[in-house]
Computed example of a mutant assay.
Amino acid sequence: MDYKLLSNEILSKLLKADDEIAFKEIYSRYWKLLFQTAYYRLGSKETAKELVQNVFLNLWEKRNVLIIDKLENYLQITIKNRVINYIETSIVQRKYQEHVVSSYDDRTMETESTVQYNELYFALEKALSELPVKTREVFQLSRFEKLSVKEIAIQMNLSEKAVEYHITSSLKALRFKLKDFMVACFILGSYHNF
């Protein structure tokens, strides 16, 4: 019997009866058509081949339970569905990867900022500890507690000129000692404290 002369309807019945030669005829008859359909939509030969192979593998594995009225229509619909599923899965994977990369970048930036902030904080603490006591107190009242020159003068029993001197002196010393951190200060928005 020449299987090439058989109709799709007969080939489908033979396939259901576990006829491997019928399956091979269906494969050789429709492989190229299904490949072209998949390749046209995907633009990838490897992916198109893989999807077509999966269609035929599924056809053989489920041959006993499949109800196929029109073989060509069944195969065309099946490959189109495989292509759609592949595209949808690819989109979901890409979005997930973008999310992971974005989250990683955000966490990395947060970690780097935290490290820089901590380094700056400890450098500032060290630089402040090296200032004369009165200069350090004036600086802290001015920059951390936001007191005016007049308020500091009253609180510390100093002239306003003396307070201005201590502020100027402390700023000059801190700028020198923290010059390597000035970029970090700008990034972290802390420069205005100096």
Rank of each mutant, 00 (worst) to 15 (best):
L11N: 12
T114Q: 10
E50N: 14
R136W: 00
Y96R: 04
Q93E: 01
I79L: 11
T114P: 05
A127W: 05
A48L: 07
T89A: 00
T108Y: 11
Y117C: 06
I91G: 00
A153V: 06
E72P: 05
F181I: 11
I91L: 01
L75I: 09
Q97N: 05
Q155C: 08
R63T: 11
K172A: 03
S190I: 15
W31G: 12
Y74A: 13
Y165A: 05
D69L: 00
S7I: 02
A17W: 08
T114Y: 07
E50I: 06
S113D: 15
M182R: 02
K134A: 07
A17H: 10
V100G: 12
K4V: 04
Q76S: 14
E50F: 11
L15C: 09
A22T: 10
K161F: 04
L178K: 04
S44H: 13
L33R: 05
K13V: 06
K24E: 15
N81R: 03
I187V: 14
F194M: 09
Q76H: 13
S142R: 04
N85E: 10
V115A: 13
L120N: 06
P132N: 07
N64C: 10
Q116M: 10
L128F: 04
W31T: 12
N193W: 14
S129C: 00
H99T: 13
K49H: 09
V149H: 01
I68K: 02
F181Q: 12
N64E: 07
S113K: 13
V92Y: 00
T89L: 00
K45E: 15
K146I: 00
S113A: 07
A17V: 07
F186I: 10
G43I: 00
M109L: 14
L124A: 14
W60T: 08
K161L: 09
N58T: 10
R175L: 15
E137G: 02
F144R: 03
L147Q: 05
F181N: 11
S103V: 09
S44W: 10
Q140I: 06
Y30C: 11
V138M: 09
A127E: 05
N157F: 06
Y104G: 06
F56W: 06
L5C: 02
V149Q: 02
N118Q: 01
S103C: 03
L66A: 08
W31N: 13
L5R: 00
L131N: 08
E151Y: 05
I154T: 07
S169K: 15
P132Q: 04
Y191E: 07
D19S: 07
L188A: 05
E119D: 07
I91A: 00
V92T: 10
E130S: 04
R175S: 14
S169I: 12
S28P: 08
Y117E: 03
N73Q: 12
S44R: 09
Q93V: 03
R29H: 05
D18G: 04
Q140K: 05
N81K: 01
E46L: 07
K49F: 02
H192V: 08
L59C: 05
